[in-house]
Nucleic acid binder design. Structure first.
Lengths: 314, 314
DNA sequence: TTAGCGTTATTGATGTCATCAATAGTAGTA
DNA sequence: TACTACTATTGATGACATCAATAACGCTAA
């Protein structure tokens, strides 16, 4: 024996309201025969006649009258559940912990974070600036919800969502802009190349672009290790050095002097930035919001060149 | 998009309670895969993850936690509805209007009515003693719920339920019992035959049994019209008359002298008594109760002879 | 590191149920 | 009697729930 369904209840209430099977069927967007069959099926299951069809309009039986209030209550509460679901989906609440790599945080976060925090006041955003390896580790331990980093990353337990592609520009303080139209990779004076310490993907990416060997030293008697873009750029200024900068790092960045920026010749090396989550991450809707906010903030500031080469961060 | 079903709610509550999909599946008497699929289906429809499967035991998500109380409420109210249905089926309430023919009422009603009224105090029994034609008319007008009468009756709008068959006995006050073993139809002295007025089925039945013509007078200068069995029998006593009596009229009836009763030879004429209702009568459960009560009261008091002939009441 | 175990997810086949179109049946009216 | 409006019934079909089998995953012990 099958139990009462909410659909059947809906049909019963429609007949009670309209006093007509055919009108009720219209209200429920089914045919009259469907509604007739389903109400009969319910009556048979209950072993109770709910309606007296011979009366015009159709009326409840005495037994039907005794039950109708409870039918209404069940249906109302199920509607309340549906409404509560919709409200729950509208309201974002809880905590979203975000890890951002240091070569992104200073330029990307200001682009969207204030807007995000304002629009979703009930969400507790916990943002930390950590390297890719830390992000991966914490994601896997489920101590972090989402990372914003350079992709692809290869880990079976993680999943990534692409946000945008960002070209590398040459930042060469030894030259003036009028000298070169397009800077070729081979034009880079690797003896003046400055990089962040090795835990940064961007470092790996630049080394890949320039075909550099690992464990390279800048000068014969100097080992430079810093995680700070600020330090890096100031040293470049002082020593007429050169490095590669992702395009967004140069956007509205007073630290970077535009006259030392050179686009590279195609295929233009780019880094791809995305979100990373654990495969069983369940706050999917917050993720979507984050994704949307970032892309909305970034897209107007980036062209997407045609002839590009995504540089692997490892 | 399909809406939430009570079955899905049941599954969700079982998982919330047990903290395990497989345990919940057992509780719901379905396989784990069914339960897993259906909960996933619900989550997809709602676009909300209700459970965090990675925790052991399985736990509600924050969103799930916000919704679970309402899930419980809907389910509880649907259970309340089911319980109310069962209660409604147990309780008999309202009015049952019963029409009984006069040749039955005096002997049949005392057999079961007190028992019936006592057992179902919430039912309002409205019993009236009226002839078959009045019963038929009122049934069709829906002014009467059920008639107790001699069947068959032919009417497309009515439906009958057989209760029992009741043999006719000869009641002949001119003879002593030792004279005849079995009374034959042809032995009836039709000149001393007394009958009720013509609106009574029993009168028609006796005339059919005895092959009498209609509009017959008892005596040359006397027209006898009465609806009262009491009058009939008293006149028979006074005039050494004869009539046919259904067997139940003779049961524990001090008015009838047993020594004047004679069984008839086979094929024994019988009248069949039954219930009549309108085809759209909906108080079926009360009807069943009435049927049961009558048959329980009558059956021990009637043998069912083998060689019988049902006499049509018309 | 591997094997084993317990648990959840997925998939294809199958049974069950809801639905519709067509039509029968009913009652009322002109 | 014909027509109309309404409810019931029936067979075909599409949608859905279910199961068996197996994959995938995580944990633990050897």
């Amino acid at each position: 024996m099958t139990s009462i369904t909410l659909n059947q209840i809906k049909y019963v209430l429609a007949v009670e309201k309209t006093g007509s099977f055919s009108a009720a069927a219209q209200e429920c967007y089914v045919t009259q025969s469907t509604l007739s069959t389903m109400i009969k099926k319910l009556e048979d299951a209950l072993d109770i006649s709910l309606f007296d069809r011979k009366q015009k309009p159709v009326r409840l039986t005495e037994e039907g009258s005794k039950l109708i209030a409870q039918f209404k209550l069940v249906y109302r509460e199920s509607q309340n559940l549906t409404e509560l679901v919709q409200e729950t989906k509208k309201d974002f609440f809880g905590t979203l912990s975000i890890g951002v790599i240091p070569t992104l945080a200073p330029y990307l976060l200001p682009m969207f974070l204030d807007d995000l925090v304002t629009e979703f006041p009930d969400i507790n955003f916990a943002v930390s600036e950590i390297t890719t390896s830390k992000i991966v580790e914490k994601l896997k331990l489920r101590e972090l919800d989402v990372g914003i980093l350079s992709i692809p990353i290869q880990d079976a337990k993680l999943e990534t969502i692409s946000l945008y592609k960002e070209e590398f520009l040459v930042y060469d303080t030894s030259k003036s802009k009028s000298t070169h139209k397009k800077y070729k990779i081979k034009d880079i004076d690797i003896n003046r190349l400055w990089l962040l310490e090795e835990s940064h993907c961007m470092t790996n990416q630049i080394e890949t672009i320039c075909n550099l060997q690992k464990s390279r030293k800048v000068n014969n008697n100097l080992t430079f290790e810093s995680s700070s873009m600020l330090t890096l750029i100031n040293l470049i200024h002082k020593n007429k050095g050169v490095t590669l900068l992702p395009k967004l790092t140069t956007y509205q960045n007073n630290l970077v002097n535009k006259k030392f920026l050179y686009p590279l010749a195609p295929p233009i090396p780019v880094r791809e930035i995305g979100l990373a989550i654990h495969v069983n991450f369940y706050k999917k809707r917050m993720l979507k919001i984050l994704q949307k906010k970032i892309m909305q903030a970034v897209k107007p500031k980036l062209d997407t060149p045609r002839n590009i080469k995504v540089v692997n961060p490892f």
